[in-house]
Design a protein around this nucleic acid. Structure first.
Length: 282
DNA sequence: CATTAGCCCTGAGAGC
DNA sequence: TGCTCTCAGGGCTAAT
């Protein structure tokens, strides 16, 4: 589900209610999600003070006093639900809530993930980037190290379609199916192109397009389609600004007319839907 | 090494 | 209304 802007937004929401607070208690409701929960997770959380948060690609890291960081991935359907503990009591357990913690100042945060594609792990804070799930990630698209030449180098020699290459977290960290389509539209590049053909001026357009679409989405609170909500239950609004994603057959609003846009096309690449304007994107 | 297919799950929506 | 089918924002692993 969540791509970089959604993870960033959730993380900011968690930071607001957890940073500097002390965890009074934690509970784990099942042994595993994608992988087993780390041994002693609830015990390691209990009593710890929450330091800062950090995002790496689609992963969140919550630093604890004591030297551990909690690594969280929301998978496709994961959400973090923060509520005051004096909220009206529920008459039934929250469905698919697999983990929860409570702070000493009365906030309860649950990790809810129906599809269970998410994961939670512990990693020493001093060695976060060495974790097996983070070690291979490509550059952060919103940081200065993500430059046209870095991107072109990552795409060099790859005969796979550009769309599939940008979904590869080793090329750039944090893009998913929505934002790849949207960034390619902004850069006027076809998702069908060979990745290796993106050099020079194409890469010079693609990097700022990726940056802009991610930054604008964060600004809008992310995109709320099926499952995604903020930690406080609020929703994002960037879906209202999609130019191509899930708009098959509709005209794009940037083709010059008349006659205007021939219609946004949906194609399946590597098992995932891609959306593009065949006239503007080459 | 690069690339693809299969798979892990549940739920929402479409079509009948 | 209720059934069945398809698809969904991800990413690992095994096979090619």
């Amino acid at each position: 589900m969540p791509e970089l802007p959604e993870v960033e937004t959730v993380m900011r929401g968690l930071s607001a209610v957890l940073e500097g607070r002390t965890i009074r208690a934690a509970s784990v409701a099942r042994p595993d999600l994608r992988w087993p929960f780390p041994a002693g997770l609830a015990e390691r959380l209990a009593g710890a003070r929450v330091g800062g948060f950090r995002r790496r690609g689609k992963y969140m890291l919550m630093r604890l006093s004591g030297g551990d960081s909690v690594l969280i991935h929301l998978g496709m359907s994961g959400r973090m639900v923060a509520q005051p503990m004096d909220a009206p009591p529920r008459d039934a357990p929250v469905p698919h809530e697999h983990m929860a913690l409570e702070t000493t100042d009365g906030v309860r945060v649950g990790f809810v993930d129906p599809r269970r594609f998410g994961c939670v792990d512990l990693v020493p804070t001093a060695a976060e980037d060495g974790h097996r799930l983070l070690a291979g990630l490509g550059p952060e698209p919103l940081e200065p190290g993500f430059t046209p030449s870095v991107l072109a180098a990552a795409l060099r020699g790859r005969r796979t379609p550009l769309k599939a290459a940008l979904l590869d977290q080793k090329v750039v960290a944090g893009l998913g199916n929505i934002y790849v389509s949207e960034a390619l539209f902004r850069a006027r590049l076809s998702p069908l192109r060979a990745a290796s053909s993106v050099t020079g001026a194409d890469a010079e357009r693609l990097v700022p397009a990726i940056r802009a679409v991610l930054a604008e989405s964060i600004e809008a609170g992310g995109s709320s389609l099926r499952d995604y909500v903020h930690a406080d239950g609020g929703i994002g609004f960037f879906q209202e600004r999609f130019k191509v994603y899930d708009r098959e057959g509709l005209p794009c609003d940037e083709c010059p007319g008349p006659p205007g846009c021939p219609g946004i096309q949906r194609v399946v690449q590597a098992g995932r839907a891609s959306f593009h304007c065949p006239r503007l994107q080459r």
